[in-house]
Design a protein around this nucleic acid. Structure first.
Length: 501
RNA sequence: GGUCCGGUGGCCGAGUGGCUAGGCAGAGCUCUGCAAAAGCUUCCACAGCGGUUCGAAUCCGCUCUGGACCUCCA
């Protein structure tokens, strides 16, 4: 069995073969830290975190590089190109790097709440100005870029003509051809600087009021957006690496431009497998600033937004994302997230209970059919993940297993219905997949022992009351605890358990 | 206008031609002092119209319809 991934470059699933196994290089486009991350941003970072984790589960040694864009991400539409970062900084009266730090911290906080593993390297654009300038110089030397008024532009037409001959036309990733692009002419203000509207900036001359600026052979300025990813990915992963990931909306022009830049410099398509996650939508529309429908992560966790009926925990969101396939759109709604919240609780409760059970590894199955079924459901975990990371299918199997576990718990099924080895495997695989591969963690309120002591006291008082058939008292304890967010459950064995919201 | 991707039950979503995921919600039953939880059972689908096939949600065509990208975008 081998891993298959959908490669945007070929538009089909391909067997994943690392260039230099067991090492795998993976680059994922990170955030622009000029503002707060929203739910849409969470998807690629959770998706590629799970991919990272699964690759390691398969035994690969992965170098995972995810950048931070802290400069150079300018807007071209306005009268003059403005760096997004410095523009926002003036508005908030912060030093540019102060702003960058603020949103970087917030982003890291959100990533850790999602239990995303930190990447191996998290390079910043401002930390790699030199590498970017070197790359631009090389592109100019090779004749695929030109200078104009202190800015440098990539010559797309020349690139397309020359590299079409070797089967690498501009547009090969997003499946568009230059002729179609030429048809949709739009007048831009600094059109006159460019020889062609398809040309994109490698370096922009900084106007006097621009705060973020660096010296370059072409005067003071700042780098274009696309060049940072090319410079940093080749620096840390080599001229050719295995996986390049990001959101589908980056496919064009960002990733297309990356391919063009790197191909000129290194004569190689930088990455072999291009993986793109689809968008999160609200009522069918992409979540994004232009639609004014974003839900920031801080709002999501606190519930502080008119769109939200309640707060949603990081694990609920993680689970929500894992319930769909990463290449499909995923529609946000309160109903959908509430369903995820309940589903995750059910799954996690049965997992936690079962992981505490002591298994006698020597027993044989008294119900062979069930034993086989459990083994099959477990074996399919790998099979489904190997098929382009079908997390949704793995979760479906987990719910089937959850039913088996709950039946054992409620004694509808005897514990030795499945064999000792199968039970051990069940414990092990659930833990491996839920915690190590899917990166889910329990979200219980931290308890220092005091709370537990108090609750056990109340549970005992209630038990006494129940014994006297004093249901007034027992219900009062249960109802008032419920109002405080503590749920009591009378278990089949006569004991009482609780859960804290 | 160009390029591309979808339309699955009340909601979110898997679905590689035949074995008709899964979750949430709804209904019934079991258990329970009552709950909750859990278990069992059950209801509700493949946008429409043709075609291919013994058989189609799945392949082909057309129609309707939603969306993404082409500009910053995860």
């Amino acid at each position: 069995m081998s891993l298959k991934v959908y490669n945007s470059l070929s538009r089909q699933k391909e067997i994943f073969t690392p260039i230099n196994a067991p090492y795998v290089g993976m680059y994922v486009c990170g955030p622009t830290v000029s503002g707060e991350s929203h739910l849409g941003h969470a998807r690629p970072f959770i998706t590629f975190d799970v991919i990272y984790r699964y690759l390691m589960y398969l035994g690969y040694k992965v170098r995972y590089v995810r950048n931070i864009t802290d400069a150079g991400h300018f807007e071209e539409e306005g009268r003059e190109a403005e760096d997004k970062i410095s523009k926002k900084a003036v508005l908030e009266k912060l030093e540019p790097m102060e702003l960058v730090q603020k949103y970087t911290n917030l982003y890291h906080w959100a990533m850790s709440r999602f239990n995303n593993l930190p990447p191996s390297i998290e390079p910043t654009a401002t930390g790699h100005i030199v590498e970017q300038i070197e790359m631009i110089k090389k592109i100019i030397e090779d004749g695929y870029a030109y200078e104009a008024n202190g800015s440098v532009y990539f010559d797309v037409a020349k690139y397309n003509t020359d590299f079409s001959k070797v089967g690498k036309p501009y547009g090969m990733l997003s499946g568009r051809n230059l002729e179609d692009q030429l048809d949709t002419t739009r007048e831009l203000d600094n059109q006159d600087e460019k020889r062609d509207k398809n040309d994109f900036a490698l370096w922009k001359s900084a106007p006097p009021e621009h705060i973020m600026r660096w010296n370059s052979p072409w005067g003071e300025g700042f780098p274009g957006w696309h060049i940072e990813c090319s410079a940093m990915s080749s620096k840390y992963l080599g001229e050719e690496f295995d996986i390049h990931g990001g959101g589908m909306d980056l496919q064009f022009p960002h990733h297309e431009c990356e391919i063009a830049q790197s191909t000129v410099c290194n004569h190689k398509t930088p990455a072999r497998y291009w993986l793109h996650n689809n968008m999160i939508t609200i009522q069918g529309k992409k979540m994004g600033k232009s639609y004014n429908n974003v839900i920031k992560l801080t709002e999501l966790f606190s519930g502080d937004s008119p769109i939200l009926e309640q707060p949603y925990s990081p694990m609920t969101i993680r689970f929500f994302i894992l319930q769909s396939h990463y290449r499909g759109t995923l529609d946000f709604s309160n109903e959908a997230l509430q369903a995820s919240e309940k589903a995750l609780k059910r799954l996690w409760d049965s997992y936690e209970w079962y992981s505490k059970q002591t298994i006698d590894a020597t027993t044989t199955a008294t119900d062979n059919a069930l034993d086989e079924k459990v083994k099959k459901l477990l074996a399919e975990f790998d099979e489904f993940m190997d098929d382009d990371f079908s997390t949704a299918k793995v979760l479906a199997n987990m719910f089937d297993l959850s039913s088996v576990i709950n039946s054992i718990k409620d004694k509808h099924i005897v514990a030795d219905a499945i064999s000792g080895p199968t039970a051990t495997l069940l414990q092990k695989q659930l833990k491996t997949y839920l915690e190590d591969v899917f990166g889910l963690v329990g979200e219980r309120v931290a308890d220092n022992g005091q709370l537990d002591g108090v609750l056990q006291l109340l549970i005992n008082i209630r038990k006494d009351a129940k014994g006297r058939k004093d249901f007034m008292t027992s219900d009062k304890i249960r109802n008032e605890l419920a109002a405080l967010g503590v749920q009591l459950k009378d278990e089949k064995d006569g004991g009482t358990s609780y859960s804290v919201n």
